[in-house]
């Protein structure tokens, strides 16, 4: 997994959910969905938009599932795959 993309995804997640110092401690293994109380359906939608804006490409919605948001690493792998289809 590219460390650069992981850093970018961590930054977008931290800002969108306003995790503050908790964001800095997120690793690829850190669980997101179910572990972060901030991550409700509104936040998931905001996060998708923020990721698209940050990376500059549209995310294929039908490829998103709850597993996409399982851990920070899962989300990073998903974004990497979306950027290089």
């Amino acid at each position: 997994m590219t460390p650069d993309i992981l850093d970018d995804v961590r930054r977008v997640v931290t800002h969108t959910l306003q995790l503050g110092s908790r964001g800095a401690h997120l690793t690829a293994e850190s669980p997101l969905l179910g572990a972060l109380p901030e991550l409700d359906s509104l936040a998931v939608a905001s996060l998708i938009v923020a990721l698209e804006e940050h990376f500059g490409f549209a995310i294929a919605e039908d490829e998103i599932s709850a597993a996409t948001f399982s851990t920070l690493g899962d989300l990073t792998a998903f974004m990497a795959a979306q950027g290089h289809p």
Partner: peptide
């Protein structure tokens, strides 16, 4: 509309 999709996903 994506909020609706996100609700489905979650």
């Amino acid at each position: 509309l994506r909020v609706k999709l996100a609700t489905d996903i979650l």
